[in-house]
């Protein structure tokens, strides 16, 4: 018991090193994750943007938070994918029959997800800068944005762990992410919710993406964040805790 606890962090480090190699050796996963959100951003800014009344003269600024969430939602699908591949290959059985904390195996994947999503978020912000994104936010606001995005990534990654562990096929392992990628469309990410019909609007205003997007948007444009940020944080933490507990339950059932 003692030895596995003592080495918990170094074991996670080894696991992180392992799956980071998987990412650096298949950069296409990061490129794929970035391309769709960037294409969306181009489409919305240069094709549809002219006709959208978002009440702002810089539509890139308005759009960016939602695009980042879409990128994260598609990025975590790869966590499910990598986890699924590990389950299939027998390497999990090797790890599980070794004297290491079993949760270290999962945390390695979760931390990898945080790092790889951070990379794609940075790439997308750089592209947005070229497209005219400007922010007057200071260091503290940027840190707050980074914190929210990290929390979103963590929460969604723990959701991804569940299909990663339970799926019967590769397609099944990543299909769960489609609704998550789609969710920003029915929110304030692309257009203000005011123009939507009542029912849609009610959904849009009360789903997590809207509060998260609004909070990030306010932080980036130096506006007062109000209560949005607390609602956003509550959503993230709530999802994180439920998904984590469920994932751990599934994991324990799968692996003794």
């Amino acid at each position: 018991m003692e030895t596995t606890k003592k080495h918990f962090l170094s074991d996670i480090g080894v696991m992180l090193g392992r799956s980071m190699r998987h990412i650096t050796r298949s950069m296409d996963t990061i490129i794929t994750v970035c391309i769709t959100p960037i294409a969306m951003m181009l489409l919305f800014v240069y094709v549809l943007g002219g006709a959208i009344q978002a009440g702002t003269d810089n539509y890139v600024n308005y759009l960016l938070p939602g695009i980042l969430l879409m990128a994260i939602a598609s990025g975590i699908a790869y966590t499910a994918f990598r986890l699924f591949m590990d389950m299939q290959s027998g390497i999990f059985e090797r790890f599980h029959s070794m004297p290491i904390a079993r949760s270290a195996v999962l945390w390695g994947h979760v931390l990898t997800s945080l790092v790889s999503n951070a990379i794609s978020v940075i790439v997308i912000i750089l592209v947005a800068l070229i497209m005219g994104f400007r922010s007057s936010a200071g260091i503290v606001s940027w840190l707050a944005v980074a914190g929210i995005l990290a929390l979103v990534t963590l929460a969604l990654t723990w959701i991804a762990v569940i299909p990663g562990l339970t799926a019967k096929s590769i397609d099944g392992a990543s299909a769960f992410s489609y609704p998550l990628i789609f969710l920003p469309f029915i929110s304030s990410a692309f257009v203000p919710t005011d123009s939507m019909p009542t029912v849609v609007r009610a959904f849009a205003e009360n789903q997590p993406v809207t509060s998260i997007v609004d909070a990030i948007r306010a932080l980036l444009s130096n506006q007062p964040v109000g209560s949005e940020i607390w609602i956003a944080l509550a959503w993230c933490l709530g999802i994180l805790i439920v998904a984590y507990l469920l994932a751990m339950l599934v994991y324990k059932r799968k692996a003794l």
């Binding site: 998987h22 290959s89 027998g90 390497i91 059985e93």
Partner: peptide
């Protein structure tokens, strides 16, 4: 195990 438990990418 029955299926070689090596990490193929490493």
């Amino acid at each position: 195990g029955q299926f070689a438990a090596v990490d193929e990418i490493l």
